[in-house]
Write a protein that binds this DNA or RNA. Structure first.
Length: 427
RNA sequence: GGAGAGAUGUCCGAGUGGUUUAUGGAGCUGGUCUUGAAAACCAGUGACACCGCAAGGUGCCGGGGGUUCGAAUCCCUCUCUCUCCGCCA
Protein backbone atom coordinates (compact mmCIF):
# COMPACT_ATOMS: atom_id res chain seq x y z
CA UNK A 1 0.00 0.00 0.00
CA UNK A 2 2.45 2.61 -1.16
CA UNK A 3 0.52 5.84 -1.39
CA UNK A 4 2.61 8.77 -2.42
CA UNK A 5 0.39 11.43 -0.97
CA UNK A 6 0.84 14.78 -2.60
CA UNK A 7 4.41 14.45 -3.79
CA UNK A 8 3.51 16.23 -7.01
CA UNK A 9 2.14 19.22 -5.14
CA UNK A 10 5.20 19.53 -2.94
CA UNK A 11 7.50 19.20 -5.95
CA UNK A 12 5.70 21.91 -7.89
CA UNK A 13 5.52 24.34 -4.99
CA UNK A 14 8.20 23.55 -2.41
CA UNK A 15 8.52 27.12 -1.15
CA UNK A 16 4.79 27.45 -0.59
CA UNK A 17 4.77 24.23 1.40
CA UNK A 18 7.82 25.31 3.35
CA UNK A 19 6.20 28.63 4.23
CA UNK A 20 2.92 26.99 5.27
CA UNK A 21 4.69 24.54 7.51
CA UNK A 22 6.84 27.25 9.03
CA UNK A 23 3.58 28.72 10.33
CA UNK A 24 3.28 25.62 12.47
CA UNK A 25 6.77 26.10 13.87
CA UNK A 26 7.59 22.60 12.67
CA UNK A 27 10.76 21.57 10.90
CA UNK A 28 10.30 19.30 7.91
CA UNK A 29 13.27 18.15 5.85
CA UNK A 30 11.92 19.04 2.42
CA UNK A 31 15.33 19.05 0.75
CA UNK A 32 15.83 15.39 1.52
CA UNK A 33 12.33 14.73 0.31
CA UNK A 34 12.89 16.55 -2.97
CA UNK A 35 16.20 14.77 -3.60
CA UNK A 36 14.63 11.37 -2.98
CA UNK A 37 11.69 12.27 -5.17
CA UNK A 38 13.99 13.06 -8.07
CA UNK A 39 15.95 9.87 -7.53
CA UNK A 40 12.73 7.91 -7.59
CA UNK A 41 11.56 9.39 -10.86
CA UNK A 42 14.89 8.73 -12.55
CA UNK A 43 14.95 5.11 -11.46
CA UNK A 44 11.33 4.70 -12.41
CA UNK A 45 11.84 5.76 -16.02
CA UNK A 46 14.85 3.48 -16.28
CA UNK A 47 13.06 0.41 -15.00
CA UNK A 48 9.95 1.18 -17.01
CA UNK A 49 11.92 1.23 -20.22
CA UNK A 50 13.29 -2.18 -19.37
CA UNK A 51 9.82 -3.48 -18.63
CA UNK A 52 8.65 -2.19 -21.96
CA UNK A 53 11.45 -4.12 -23.63
CA UNK A 54 10.53 -7.24 -21.69
CA UNK A 55 6.90 -6.97 -22.74
CA UNK A 56 7.74 -6.44 -26.40
CA UNK A 57 10.28 -9.25 -26.54
CA UNK A 58 7.96 -11.63 -24.70
CA UNK A 59 5.41 -11.13 -27.45
CA UNK A 60 8.13 -11.83 -29.96
CA UNK A 61 9.06 -15.04 -28.14
CA UNK A 62 5.43 -16.13 -28.17
CA UNK A 63 5.28 -15.52 -31.90
CA UNK A 64 8.49 -17.44 -32.60
CA UNK A 65 7.32 -20.38 -30.52
CA UNK A 66 4.04 -20.48 -32.35
CA UNK A 67 5.93 -20.64 -35.63
CA UNK A 68 8.16 -23.28 -34.05
CA UNK A 69 11.28 -21.18 -34.54
CA UNK A 70 14.24 -20.87 -32.20
CA UNK A 71 13.89 -18.31 -29.39
CA UNK A 72 16.72 -19.39 -27.13
CA UNK A 73 18.87 -16.30 -27.73
CA UNK A 74 16.04 -13.95 -26.87
CA UNK A 75 15.13 -15.95 -23.79
CA UNK A 76 18.71 -15.81 -22.57
CA UNK A 77 18.76 -12.06 -23.10
CA UNK A 78 15.50 -11.63 -21.24
CA UNK A 79 16.83 -13.56 -18.29
CA UNK A 80 19.43 -10.82 -17.93
CA UNK A 81 16.86 -8.06 -18.32
CA UNK A 82 14.54 -9.62 -15.78
CA UNK A 83 17.34 -9.78 -13.27
CA UNK A 84 18.09 -6.09 -13.72
CA UNK A 85 14.39 -5.22 -13.43
CA UNK A 86 14.20 -7.11 -10.18
CA UNK A 87 17.15 -5.21 -8.72
CA UNK A 88 15.83 -1.82 -9.81
CA UNK A 89 12.32 -2.58 -8.57
CA UNK A 90 13.77 -3.35 -5.18
CA UNK A 91 15.65 -0.04 -5.12
CA UNK A 92 12.56 1.91 -6.21
CA UNK A 93 10.61 0.25 -3.40
CA UNK A 94 13.20 1.32 -0.87
CA UNK A 95 13.16 4.92 -2.02
CA UNK A 96 9.37 5.01 -2.07
CA UNK A 97 9.23 3.66 1.46
CA UNK A 98 11.61 6.42 2.54
CA UNK A 99 9.52 9.05 0.76
CA UNK A 100 6.36 7.74 2.33
CA UNK A 101 7.92 7.81 5.77
CA UNK A 102 8.65 11.48 5.29
CA UNK A 103 5.24 12.27 3.81
CA UNK A 104 3.41 10.58 6.67
CA UNK A 105 5.15 12.87 9.14
CA UNK A 106 4.35 16.10 7.27
CA UNK A 107 1.39 17.83 8.96
CA UNK A 108 -1.49 19.37 7.07
CA UNK A 109 -1.11 22.84 5.63
CA UNK A 110 -3.01 25.49 7.62
CA UNK A 111 -5.87 27.24 5.85
CA UNK A 112 -5.20 30.83 4.85
CA UNK A 113 -7.70 32.13 7.41
CA UNK A 114 -5.75 30.55 10.26
CA UNK A 115 -3.79 33.16 12.25
CA UNK A 116 -0.08 32.93 12.87
CA UNK A 117 1.14 32.50 16.42
CA UNK A 118 3.61 30.91 18.76
CA UNK A 119 1.38 28.95 21.13
CA UNK A 120 -2.19 28.56 22.40
CA UNK A 121 -1.83 32.10 23.79
CA UNK A 122 -2.29 33.31 20.24
CA UNK A 123 -5.57 31.55 19.55
CA UNK A 124 -8.26 34.02 18.52
CA UNK A 125 -11.56 34.25 20.36
CA UNK A 126 -14.45 34.25 17.88
CA UNK A 127 -17.51 34.54 20.12
CA UNK A 128 -18.86 33.94 23.60
CA UNK A 129 -22.18 32.69 24.88
CA UNK A 130 -23.58 32.96 28.41
CA UNK A 131 -22.24 34.70 31.47
CA UNK A 132 -20.24 32.93 34.15
CA UNK A 133 -22.31 32.78 37.28
CA UNK A 134 -21.50 34.87 40.35
CA UNK A 135 -21.39 32.56 43.34
CA UNK A 136 -22.59 33.88 46.71
CA UNK A 137 -20.34 31.26 48.30
CA UNK A 138 -17.01 29.61 47.66
CA UNK A 139 -17.60 27.24 44.73
CA UNK A 140 -16.02 23.80 44.93
CA UNK A 141 -14.14 21.94 42.20
CA UNK A 142 -16.14 19.13 40.58
CA UNK A 143 -14.04 16.35 42.09
CA UNK A 144 -14.96 17.52 45.58
CA UNK A 145 -18.61 17.97 44.63
CA UNK A 146 -18.71 14.51 43.06
CA UNK A 147 -17.03 12.78 45.97
CA UNK A 148 -19.16 14.63 48.54
CA UNK A 149 -22.33 13.56 46.72
CA UNK A 150 -21.04 9.99 46.37
CA UNK A 151 -21.40 10.03 42.61
CA UNK A 152 -17.71 10.07 41.60
CA UNK A 153 -15.15 7.71 43.06
CA UNK A 154 -11.56 8.21 41.98
CA UNK A 155 -9.96 6.26 44.82
CA UNK A 156 -11.78 3.03 44.01
CA UNK A 157 -10.88 3.35 40.32
CA UNK A 158 -7.24 3.81 41.32
CA UNK A 159 -7.45 0.64 43.40
CA UNK A 160 -9.12 -1.39 40.65
CA UNK A 161 -7.27 -0.01 37.65
CA UNK A 162 -4.95 2.94 38.24
CA UNK A 163 -4.60 6.69 38.03
CA UNK A 164 -6.78 8.69 35.62
CA UNK A 165 -9.77 6.36 35.81
CA UNK A 166 -13.10 6.95 37.51
CA UNK A 167 -16.10 5.10 38.85
CA UNK A 168 -19.36 6.98 38.35
CA UNK A 169 -22.00 5.84 40.81
CA UNK A 170 -25.75 6.25 41.27
CA UNK A 171 -27.04 9.48 39.77
CA UNK A 172 -23.49 10.27 38.62
CA UNK A 173 -23.52 7.23 36.36
CA UNK A 174 -26.99 8.17 35.26
CA UNK A 175 -25.91 11.74 34.52
CA UNK A 176 -23.10 10.50 32.29
CA UNK A 177 -25.52 8.20 30.46
CA UNK A 178 -28.20 10.90 30.22
CA UNK A 179 -25.72 13.30 28.69
CA UNK A 180 -24.54 11.11 25.85
CA UNK A 181 -28.09 10.01 25.11
CA UNK A 182 -29.15 13.65 24.99
CA UNK A 183 -26.25 14.60 22.75
CA UNK A 184 -26.74 11.74 20.29
CA UNK A 185 -30.48 12.41 20.09
CA UNK A 186 -29.91 16.12 19.52
CA UNK A 187 -27.53 15.55 16.61
CA UNK A 188 -29.34 12.55 15.14
CA UNK A 189 -32.89 13.87 15.41
CA UNK A 190 -32.53 17.65 15.21
CA UNK A 191 -29.30 18.15 13.26
CA UNK A 192 -29.68 15.35 10.73
CA UNK A 193 -26.68 13.16 11.52
CA UNK A 194 -26.93 9.40 11.02
CA UNK A 195 -26.11 7.56 14.21
CA UNK A 196 -23.24 5.07 14.22
CA UNK A 197 -21.98 2.84 16.99
CA UNK A 198 -18.42 1.90 16.05
CA UNK A 199 -15.86 -0.71 17.11
CA UNK A 200 -13.65 0.45 19.97
CA UNK A 201 -10.58 -1.11 18.39
CA UNK A 202 -9.11 -0.45 14.96
CA UNK A 203 -6.15 -1.75 13.03
CA UNK A 204 -3.01 0.20 12.25
CA UNK A 205 -4.07 1.33 8.78
CA UNK A 206 -7.09 3.14 10.16
CA UNK A 207 -4.92 4.95 12.68
CA UNK A 208 -2.63 6.02 9.85
CA UNK A 209 -5.65 7.06 7.79
CA UNK A 210 -6.83 9.67 10.25
CA UNK A 211 -3.32 10.78 11.20
CA UNK A 212 -2.79 9.32 14.69
CA UNK A 213 0.01 7.16 13.32
CA UNK A 214 2.89 6.87 12.65
CA UNK A 215 3.86 10.01 14.57
CA UNK A 216 1.89 9.64 17.78
CA UNK A 217 2.02 5.94 18.60
CA UNK A 218 2.94 6.64 22.23
CA UNK A 219 -0.41 8.41 22.72
CA UNK A 220 -2.41 5.30 21.88
CA UNK A 221 -3.18 2.10 23.76
CA UNK A 222 -2.13 -0.98 21.80
CA UNK A 223 -3.93 -4.21 22.56
CA UNK A 224 -1.33 -6.82 23.51
CA UNK A 225 -1.07 -9.85 21.23
CA UNK A 226 -2.87 -8.09 18.38
CA UNK A 227 -2.25 -5.31 15.91
CA UNK A 228 -5.27 -3.42 17.27
CA UNK A 229 -5.38 -0.06 18.97
CA UNK A 230 -8.03 1.21 21.36
CA UNK A 231 -9.66 4.16 19.64
CA UNK A 232 -8.64 7.59 20.97
CA UNK A 233 -11.83 9.00 19.45
CA UNK A 234 -14.74 7.72 17.35
CA UNK A 235 -13.30 9.89 14.56
CA UNK A 236 -10.95 7.02 13.74
CA UNK A 237 -13.43 4.19 13.06
CA UNK A 238 -16.12 6.48 11.65
CA UNK A 239 -13.86 8.32 9.19
CA UNK A 240 -12.35 5.01 8.11
CA UNK A 241 -15.80 3.54 7.39
CA UNK A 242 -15.35 4.86 3.87
CA UNK A 243 -11.64 4.14 3.44
CA UNK A 244 -10.56 2.85 0.00
CA UNK A 245 -13.94 3.74 -1.41
CA UNK A 246 -15.33 5.94 -4.18
CA UNK A 247 -18.61 7.54 -3.13
CA UNK A 248 -21.29 8.80 -5.48
CA UNK A 249 -21.37 12.59 -5.60
CA UNK A 250 -25.04 12.63 -4.68
CA UNK A 251 -24.29 10.75 -1.45
CA UNK A 252 -22.49 13.85 -0.15
CA UNK A 253 -22.52 15.38 2.32
CA UNK A 254 -22.52 12.45 4.75
CA UNK A 255 -23.11 13.29 8.42
CA UNK A 256 -22.47 10.78 11.20
CA UNK A 257 -22.81 11.05 14.94
CA UNK A 258 -21.20 8.42 17.13
CA UNK A 259 -21.09 7.85 20.84
CA UNK A 260 -18.03 5.94 22.00
CA UNK A 261 -15.64 5.49 24.85
CA UNK A 262 -12.23 6.95 24.02
CA UNK A 263 -8.85 5.76 25.26
CA UNK A 264 -5.76 7.93 25.50
CA UNK A 265 -2.42 7.16 27.06
CA UNK A 266 -1.91 10.88 27.79
CA UNK A 267 1.83 10.44 27.35
CA UNK A 268 3.66 13.60 28.27
CA UNK A 269 0.82 15.08 30.30
CA UNK A 270 2.08 13.85 33.67
CA UNK A 271 1.22 16.33 36.37
CA UNK A 272 -1.42 18.17 34.31
CA UNK A 273 -5.08 18.03 35.36
CA UNK A 274 -4.36 15.11 37.65
CA UNK A 275 -7.51 15.64 39.66
CA UNK A 276 -11.05 15.18 38.45
CA UNK A 277 -12.58 14.29 35.12
CA UNK A 278 -10.67 16.61 32.83
CA UNK A 279 -7.88 14.28 31.73
CA UNK A 280 -8.68 10.56 31.92
CA UNK A 281 -7.31 7.50 30.16
CA UNK A 282 -10.88 6.51 29.33
CA UNK A 283 -13.72 8.93 28.68
CA UNK A 284 -16.95 9.11 26.76
CA UNK A 285 -17.46 11.36 23.81
CA UNK A 286 -20.09 12.04 21.20
CA UNK A 287 -18.38 12.72 17.91
CA UNK A 288 -19.62 14.39 14.74
CA UNK A 289 -18.03 13.36 11.44
CA UNK A 290 -18.70 14.79 7.99
CA UNK A 291 -17.69 13.87 4.46
CA UNK A 292 -18.21 16.73 2.01
CA UNK A 293 -17.37 18.07 -1.40
CA UNK A 294 -14.22 20.24 -1.23
CA UNK A 295 -16.09 23.39 -2.17
CA UNK A 296 -18.50 22.96 0.76
CA UNK A 297 -16.15 22.01 3.55
CA UNK A 298 -15.59 25.41 5.17
CA UNK A 299 -19.29 26.19 5.26
CA UNK A 300 -19.81 22.72 6.74
CA UNK A 301 -17.20 23.47 9.40
CA UNK A 302 -19.20 26.50 10.52
CA UNK A 303 -22.38 24.42 10.69
CA UNK A 304 -20.68 21.59 12.54
CA UNK A 305 -19.29 24.02 15.10
CA UNK A 306 -22.78 25.49 15.63
CA UNK A 307 -24.18 21.98 16.08
CA UNK A 308 -21.64 21.32 18.83
CA UNK A 309 -22.36 24.69 20.44
CA UNK A 310 -26.05 23.80 20.62
CA UNK A 311 -25.23 21.14 23.21
CA UNK A 312 -23.70 23.69 25.56
CA UNK A 313 -26.40 26.28 24.91
CA UNK A 314 -29.21 23.84 25.62
CA UNK A 315 -27.47 22.82 28.83
CA UNK A 316 -27.01 26.46 29.81
CA UNK A 317 -23.23 26.21 30.10
CA UNK A 318 -21.29 29.42 29.33
CA UNK A 319 -18.69 28.89 26.64
CA UNK A 320 -16.54 30.57 24.09
CA UNK A 321 -15.35 29.61 20.63
CA UNK A 322 -11.78 30.23 19.59
CA UNK A 323 -9.89 29.64 16.38
CA UNK A 324 -6.59 27.86 16.89
CA UNK A 325 -3.51 29.61 15.60
CA UNK A 326 -1.22 27.72 13.23
CA UNK A 327 1.22 26.72 15.97
CA UNK A 328 -1.55 25.15 18.10
CA UNK A 329 -3.25 23.31 15.24
CA UNK A 330 -3.49 19.51 15.40
CA UNK A 331 -1.31 17.48 13.04
CA UNK A 332 -4.07 16.56 10.55
CA UNK A 333 -6.14 19.73 10.69
CA UNK A 334 -6.21 22.67 8.30
CA UNK A 335 -8.46 24.75 10.56
CA UNK A 336 -9.85 24.16 14.03
CA UNK A 337 -12.35 25.85 16.31
CA UNK A 338 -12.17 24.91 19.96
CA UNK A 339 -15.25 25.14 22.17
CA UNK A 340 -14.29 25.97 25.72
CA UNK A 341 -16.70 25.73 28.61
CA UNK A 342 -16.53 27.92 31.68
CA UNK A 343 -15.06 25.97 34.59
CA UNK A 344 -15.37 27.86 37.90
CA UNK A 345 -12.67 25.83 39.69
CA UNK A 346 -10.16 26.67 36.96
CA UNK A 347 -11.39 30.26 36.77
CA UNK A 348 -11.17 30.02 33.01
CA UNK A 349 -12.60 28.38 29.92
CA UNK A 350 -11.59 24.73 29.37
CA UNK A 351 -11.64 22.87 26.06
CA UNK A 352 -14.69 20.63 25.66
CA UNK A 353 -14.83 20.25 21.90
CA UNK A 354 -12.55 20.62 18.93
CA UNK A 355 -14.08 21.09 15.48
CA UNK A 356 -11.78 20.69 12.50
CA UNK A 357 -11.68 20.66 8.75
CA UNK A 358 -9.03 18.24 7.52
CA UNK A 359 -9.66 19.11 3.88
CA UNK A 360 -8.28 16.16 1.86
CA UNK A 361 -5.50 15.28 4.33
CA UNK A 362 -7.28 12.28 5.84
CA UNK A 363 -9.00 11.43 2.56
CA UNK A 364 -5.59 10.98 0.90
CA UNK A 365 -4.24 8.84 3.68
CA UNK A 366 -7.39 6.72 3.94
CA UNK A 367 -8.13 6.90 0.17
CA UNK A 368 -11.67 8.25 0.35
CA UNK A 369 -12.95 9.66 -2.93
CA UNK A 370 -16.17 10.65 -4.60
CA UNK A 371 -17.28 10.93 -8.20
CA UNK A 372 -18.66 14.46 -8.75
CA UNK A 373 -20.85 13.25 -11.61
CA UNK A 374 -21.14 10.01 -13.59
CA UNK A 375 -18.11 9.43 -15.83
CA UNK A 376 -16.13 12.17 -14.13
CA UNK A 377 -12.79 11.57 -12.50
CA UNK A 378 -12.90 10.63 -8.83
CA UNK A 379 -11.66 13.30 -6.40
CA UNK A 380 -10.77 13.22 -2.75
CA UNK A 381 -13.55 14.20 -0.34
CA UNK A 382 -13.00 16.60 2.50
CA UNK A 383 -13.43 15.22 6.01
CA UNK A 384 -14.41 17.12 9.12
CA UNK A 385 -15.10 16.23 12.68
CA UNK A 386 -15.81 17.72 16.05
CA UNK A 387 -16.75 16.64 19.51
CA UNK A 388 -20.40 17.12 20.17
CA UNK A 389 -19.19 17.08 22.97
CA UNK A 390 -16.84 15.42 25.49
CA UNK A 391 -19.12 13.83 28.06
CA UNK A 392 -16.89 13.63 31.17
CA UNK A 393 -15.93 17.27 30.88
CA UNK A 394 -19.61 18.14 30.52
CA UNK A 395 -20.34 16.34 33.78
CA UNK A 396 -17.55 18.35 35.39
CA UNK A 397 -18.97 21.59 33.97
CA UNK A 398 -22.50 20.80 35.15
CA UNK A 399 -21.35 19.89 38.64
CA UNK A 400 -19.37 23.11 38.95
CA UNK A 401 -21.72 25.54 37.22
CA UNK A 402 -24.92 24.16 38.75
CA UNK A 403 -23.64 23.57 42.28
CA UNK A 404 -25.64 25.00 45.18
CA UNK A 405 -24.47 26.30 48.52
CA UNK A 406 -25.84 23.19 50.27
CA UNK A 407 -23.63 20.95 48.12
CA UNK A 408 -26.41 19.75 45.83
CA UNK A 409 -26.38 20.10 42.06
CA UNK A 410 -29.33 21.21 39.95
CA UNK A 411 -29.89 19.26 36.74
CA UNK A 412 -30.29 21.45 33.62
CA UNK A 413 -33.91 21.37 32.54
CA UNK A 414 -33.27 19.98 29.10
CA UNK A 415 -31.56 16.96 30.65
CA UNK A 416 -34.30 16.05 33.13
CA UNK A 417 -36.27 13.78 30.77
CA UNK A 418 -33.07 11.75 30.37
CA UNK A 419 -32.68 11.64 34.17
CA UNK A 420 -36.12 10.18 34.82
CA UNK A 421 -37.33 13.58 35.96
CA UNK A 422 -34.64 14.07 38.60
CA UNK A 423 -34.22 17.82 39.14
CA UNK A 424 -31.41 17.87 41.62
CA UNK A 425 -28.68 15.59 42.90
CA UNK A 426 -28.55 15.75 46.69
CA UNK A 427 -26.57 13.98 49.31
C1' G B 1 -10.42 -23.40 17.15
C1' G B 2 -11.51 -27.28 12.79
C1' A B 3 -13.19 -28.23 7.49
C1' G B 4 -14.55 -26.23 2.87
C1' A B 5 -15.58 -22.16 -0.75
C1' G B 6 -14.41 -17.40 -2.27
C1' A B 7 -12.03 -12.03 -3.08
C1' U B 8 -11.54 -9.46 -10.69
C1' G B 9 -12.78 -2.33 -12.79
C1' U B 10 -18.42 2.46 -10.19
C1' C B 11 -21.62 -2.23 -9.60
C1' C B 12 -22.64 -7.41 -11.22
C1' G B 13 -19.84 -11.07 -13.37
C1' A B 14 -16.46 -14.31 -17.27
C1' G B 15 -11.69 -15.76 -17.48
C1' U B 16 -6.56 -22.29 -15.18
C1' G B 17 0.64 -19.72 -18.64
C1' G B 18 1.61 -16.13 -24.61
C1' U B 19 -4.13 -12.01 -30.04
C1' U B 20 -6.94 -10.66 -22.36
C1' U B 21 -3.46 -4.35 -25.10
C1' A B 22 -8.95 -7.75 -18.83
C1' U B 23 -15.01 -11.23 -22.12
C1' G B 24 -20.08 -9.81 -21.23
C1' G B 25 -23.75 -7.15 -18.74
C1' A B 26 -25.49 -3.00 -15.66
C1' G B 27 -24.54 2.09 -15.38
C1' C B 28 -23.54 6.71 -17.80
C1' U B 29 -23.81 10.01 -22.53
C1' G B 30 -26.06 10.83 -27.29
C1' G B 31 -29.63 9.17 -30.91
C1' U B 32 -34.12 6.50 -33.11
C1' C B 33 -39.18 5.72 -31.65
C1' U B 34 -42.93 8.65 -28.40
C1' U B 35 -47.34 14.24 -26.94
C1' G B 36 -43.90 13.16 -22.77
C1' A B 37 -41.82 9.14 -20.21
C1' A B 38 -40.76 3.98 -19.81
C1' A B 39 -39.37 -0.10 -22.74
C1' A B 40 -36.84 -1.59 -27.05
C1' C B 41 -33.10 -0.68 -30.55
C1' C B 42 -28.49 1.95 -32.45
C1' A B 43 -23.98 4.43 -31.32
C1' G B 44 -20.46 6.24 -27.80
C1' U B 45 -18.09 5.50 -23.14
C1' G B 46 -15.79 1.68 -20.18
C1' A B 47 -11.57 1.11 -13.90
C1' C B 48 -7.51 3.32 -11.23
C1' A B 49 -2.42 4.93 -10.10
C1' C B 50 2.41 6.54 -11.45
C1' C B 51 6.41 8.75 -14.91
C1' G B 52 6.41 12.32 -19.01
C1' C B 53 5.67 19.30 -21.80
C1' A B 54 3.98 15.78 -25.20
C1' A B 55 4.04 11.48 -28.03
C1' G B 56 4.08 7.66 -25.24
C1' G B 57 5.36 4.31 -21.32
C1' U B 58 4.75 1.43 -16.73
C1' G B 59 2.03 -0.81 -12.98
C1' C B 60 -2.55 -2.75 -11.15
C1' C B 61 -7.35 -8.72 -11.17
C1' G B 62 -7.75 -8.67 -1.91
C1' G B 63 -2.13 -7.60 0.42
C1' G B 64 2.95 -9.46 0.24
C1' G B 65 6.53 -12.89 -1.76
C1' G B 66 8.03 -16.78 -5.37
C1' U B 67 8.38 -19.80 -10.18
C1' U B 68 8.86 -18.26 -15.59
C1' C B 69 11.60 -15.26 -21.31
C1' G B 70 6.25 -14.21 -20.15
C1' A B 71 1.34 -14.76 -14.48
C1' A B 72 -5.54 -12.56 -13.24
C1' U B 73 -4.13 -17.75 -14.44
C1' C B 74 0.95 -21.98 -11.16
C1' C B 75 3.34 -22.07 -5.91
C1' C B 76 3.94 -19.95 -0.75
C1' U B 77 2.06 -16.63 2.84
C1' C B 78 -1.14 -13.04 5.14
C1' U B 79 -5.89 -10.49 5.54
C1' C B 80 -10.99 -10.45 4.90
C1' U B 81 -15.90 -12.67 3.42
C1' C B 82 -19.32 -16.86 3.09
C1' U B 83 -21.00 -22.11 4.49
C1' C B 84 -20.74 -26.15 8.00
C1' C B 85 -18.83 -27.99 12.86
C1' G B 86 -17.02 -26.73 17.86
C1' C B 87 -16.95 -23.03 21.80
C1' C B 88 -19.24 -18.73 23.81
C1' A B 89 -22.00 -13.28 26.17
Amino acid sequence: MVVLLDAKYIRSNPEGVRAALAKRKKEVNLDKFLALDEKRRNMLSEVEQLKNKRNVVSQEIARLKKEEKDADALIAEMQQVSGTIKELDEKVREVEAELNDILLTIPNIPHESVPLGESDKDNVEIRRWGTPREFGFEPKPHWDIGEDLGILDFATAAKVTGARFTFYKGLGARLERALFNFMVDLHAIEHGYTEVFPPYMVHRHSMVGTGQLPKFEEDAFKVAGTDYFLIPTAEVPVTNMYREQILDGDQLPIYHVAYSACFRAEAGSAGRDTRGLIRQHQFNKVELVKFTRPEDSYEELEKLTRDAEDVLRLLGLPYRVSMLCAADLGFSSAKTYDLEVWMPSYGRYVEISSCSNFEDFQARRADIKYRPAPNEKARYVHTLNGSGVAVGRTVAAILENYQQEDGSVVIPERLRPYMGGVERICK
